[in-house]
Nucleic acid binder design. Structure first.
Lengths: 100, 100
DNA sequence: TATTCATATCGATAAATCTCGATTTATCGA
DNA sequence: TCGATAAATCGAGATTTATCGATATGAATA
């Protein structure tokens, strides 16, 4: 269920920083090994500021990814951890492959 | 050769009208059977005005698709025919599948 | 050559997106 | 409860994108 919205997903990944974030999240241990929290929880929001944008801008981009259903979040204490939503991503890729 | 530019392609297909045009072009005989010219040539530019936008806007969108390498053009007399660039599209889908 | 037709380009406006710093909200620990 | 930290939201300015009508270009035809 929870049908994907291809148009919204396309707009979401059509921004270099947002696409970069998704790609980074594919291999957390590769790119976020310095994170103090266990990576099983996901990647802490602040980690993504390495893309060179401000905290507020990164937060906006993460919200866009979440609205498109590409990531899920989990609050743990004062931190919020992001993870890829592999189901949505796979469904989108499949849809694009058959549609485009 | 002629490497694809994933960022540019993503921006190109992240607009509903442009995506629609690409999808329409997948089955020309399905959507453009009323075209007077043989569909082997491609789809005549004016055909795409059915998306509800003006001639100049459609022309701009077609140029965007072309710049991204998603379509090729062929001038025949006063008409310009558009065709999908299947190589680029396939390469892009493959890239997205392995990257995203 | 003048006219018509198809398409591209230009110039302008409107709308959407991007980005930031400042502020707010939420949670933690002392 | 207070101060610190993390993240979201707000408000504003800047940039980009979308769109149109008008005009230019290029080719066909009378």
């Amino acid at each position: 269920m929870n049908a994907i919205n291809p148009d919204e997903i396309l707009k979401a990944i059509a921004h270099p920083a947002r696409l970069q974030i998704l790609v980074w999240m594919k291999e957390p241990e590769q790119h976020f090994s310095e994170q103090l929290h266990p990576l099983d929880l996901g990647v802490c929001a602040s980690q993504f500021e390495r893309c060179g944008l401000s905290q507020s801008t990164v937060s906006t981009h993460l919200a866009t990814l979440q609205r498109a259903g590409l990531v899920t979040t989990q609050r743990v204490g004062q931190w919020i951890f992001y993870r890829r939503n592999e189901e949505t991503i796979a469904a989108f890729l499949q849809h694009l492959k058959t549609t485009l």
